[in-house]
Amino acid sequence: MLHKKSRLFAALAGVGVAATFAFPAQAAVVASVKPVGFIASAIADGVTPVEILLPDGASEHDYALRPSDIKRLQGADLVVWVGPEMEAFMAKMAAGLPPQKNLEMDRIEGVHALLLKGGEDEEEEHEEHAHGAADDHDHHHHGEYNMHLWMSPEIAKKTAVAIHAKLLELMPQSKDKLDANLQHFESELASVDAKIGNQLAPVKGKGYFVFHDAYTYFEKHYGLTPLGHFTVNPEIQPGAQRLHQIRTQLVEQKATCVFAEPQFRPAVIDAVARGTSVRSGTLDPLGTDITPARDSYVKFLSQLSSQYTSCLKGE
C-alpha cells in the first residue's frame, strides 16, 4: 500500500514537473521598492506579474534580504532597482544576476546627467555633531547623489523605456501589448505632469521643511521652495535640544509647513510645531496606500502634489 502511495506521489510529481515545462509559469518582474514597482507595473500590465520586494513599512536604507527574497530575486525574469547607493542590501545579490535580468535605474542611459547631488545630509550631520545632538541624527546618507530617483518624472520615463526594452527581449511575442503600455504610460505621464504643474503653481513661493531629503527631484522639477530638511531618524524620538533647534529654524525662516512621513509618530510632528503658527502635513515618498497597477505611478505623483498643496494652501 505504501509503495503504491509512493508511486502515486511520484507520478503526480512527474505530472507537475511536466506541466511546468509544458506551460511555463508566468514570468515575474521583481521591483525593489513600491514606486519602482509602479513604473514596472505600467509597462508589464497584462503581460507579466510585478512583485515588490520590500514589504510596506520596511526601510529601503537598512533592509536585510531574507532567504525567500533571495529565491524571488534569483527566480525573477527581471529585477528593477535604483542602485547600490540606495538599496545597499541588493548590491551583492544583483552582481550575480545575468545582465539581461538586472536593471539598475542609475545606470540607464541618460540618467546620470539628471542626477542631483545629495551632499546636504553630511553637512547637517556635522552640524548636529557640533551641537552635541549626534544621538538622533539620521544615518541614511546615500553618498554623492540623491538616489530617490523615482521622484523624477524624467527619470521615471527613461526607466519605463528601459523596462520596455528588457521585457521586449524576454517576451518578443508580447510586443504589441508592451508597446501599447509604454505609449499609454508616456501620454498619462505628460498629462499628469502638466496638471501637477498647474496645481503647484500657486504655492511655489511658500517655504516648508521636510524631515528627510527624499523629495529633491520632485521639488526641482516643479519649482517648489523647500527651506531645508532635518534628517531625523524616524526610529528615534529627537531630543529636547534638537526639537528646539528645529522650532527655531521653522520660526526664523518663516516656514508655512512642516511635512512628516507616514512612518513618523505624530507626536514628533506635534512636538516640533507646538508653539508656532506652522502647519503640519504628511508626504508619502513610497506611495504606501497605492496598489501597483497600470496607472499607479501617475496616481503616486498626483497624491504627492495634493499632499503639498493641501498643507501649503492651508486647506
Rank of each mutant, 00 (worst) to 15 (best):
L304F: 08
P55E: 14
G96L: 14
K299N: 11
C257D: 03
W150R: 03
C257M: 06
A267P: 00
F211R: 10
V298A: 04
V161C: 08
E315V: 02
T231N: 14
Q199K: 11
V192G: 01
H126A: 14
H184I: 04
V36E: 10
K117R: 09
D62G: 12
A91L: 05
V30M: 00
K254A: 08
L283H: 12
K117Y: 12
L115P: 00
E188I: 00
Y217G: 02
L53R: 13
A40E: 13
E87N: 01
R247A: 11
S32F: 00
A162S: 04
Q173N: 06
N102F: 04
T276S: 15
L286D: 08
Q303I: 05
Y145A: 09
S32P: 02
A194L: 02
E219A: 02
H3Q: 15
M90W: 09
A76K: 07
V29P: 10
E51F: 07
D176K: 14
A162H: 06
R247H: 07
S41W: 02
V298H: 02
R274F: 01
E125R: 11
A194G: 10
I196H: 03
L243Y: 12
M90Q: 05
F259C: 13
A18Y: 10
F218L: 05
A113S: 09
A95I: 02
Q173W: 08
E51K: 06
A133H: 13
K220Y: 14
G228T: 07
Q74V: 09
G14F: 07
Q74K: 14
V30I: 04
L301W: 01
L115G: 00
S41I: 01
Q173E: 15
E120T: 08
V272S: 12
A95Q: 08
D106E: 15
F209H: 13
L65W: 10
D284G: 10
G37I: 01
G197D: 14
Y145M: 09
G118R: 05
E219R: 06
T256Q: 15
A94E: 09
L78W: 05
L78I: 01
T231A: 14
N181D: 01
V251H: 13
P84M: 00
Q263D: 14
E219I: 09
P266W: 04
N233R: 11
E123G: 13
G37K: 06
S280P: 11
